[in-house]
Amino acid sequence: MRELTYLEAVREAMSQEMRENEDVFILGEDIGVYGGAFGVTRGMIEEFGPERIRNTPISEAAISGTAVGAALTGMRPILELQFSDFMTIAMDNMVNQAAKIRYMYGGKGKVPMVLRTPAGSGTGAAAQHSQSLEAWMAHIPGLKVVQPSTAYDAKGLLKAAIDDDNPVIFYEHKLCYRTKSDVPEEAYSIPLGKADIKKEGTDVTIVATAIMVHKSLEAAEELEKEGIHVEVIDPRTLVPLDIETIVQSVKKTGRLVVVHEAVKRGGFGGEIASLIAESEAFDYLDAPIKRLGGKAVPIPYNPELEKAAVPGVSDIVTAVKETLNRL
């Protein structure tokens, strides 16, 4: 099978969908000839034209609302927000409109749209262009939240997101864009709400999202040398969340470490930890659940400070050993 980068996989999922379905179009800032802030839509305007690769003014409130209105009337828009931090400006339309319209209208109408947006730190973009705000969106009933970590997952999940009849927030981690994996050429769909066990293990369960999946796998490899077998689970979608896979894993290992880049305080890791504490896996816990998340600080510019603000491989290794009393 051929390899694609995560970025190419996202682009391929959109292109294939757009060839199949005339209702699908993309709108966003600088997505036309420029190809988008990270180059995801590069080349697409040449194939699909400016009608369907719609360059917008710098108006996150308008384009998010326009996507809602278009979705409500029969289109399947994909909205690209240049940085997930700009969600603040699109927030009203996603939270007060997209998420609630169907419910407020008693089940009439639907809002099939995807908001794609690059998130996360590691690029030196500092405080207003590096956040991971997915927990905000996961909090809102009516939205679905997807966070793929690999090229394969990105392609399959994006197709599922576009095909979904609900508003989906699709987080693309900037550092994942250049990662590669085997990606089938044909279109395929990965159901939303199905976690993936990225590595099987018996001693400790790590639940990690986005770039932290890669860091956790690195940590797991290191721990394997010391005879510690870590199971790494990527939930892939926060809403809906496949808690059952995590419960089963924790029942097996008795230990849970949750890792995300988003600030730990109020982060989605707290939700996972709580769900496990409430679940039947509780009686199998043989160590306190550990959460690793970003420090409660705006992402700083200096590269060393930036790295220190979010969990790294050694933090994960340490956390795993702590749960095993092996420090």
């Binding site: 409130a61 308008a62 384009i63 998010s64 609302g65 326009t66 996507a67 809602v68 209105g69 278009a70 979705a71 409500l72 009337t73 029969g74 289109m75 828009p77 339309n93 409109q97």
Partner: peptide, 11 residues
Amino acid sequence: FAIAAGAALTS
């Protein structure tokens, strides 16, 4: 405002 614009875009 924007929802109306979006509905108009569909049209």
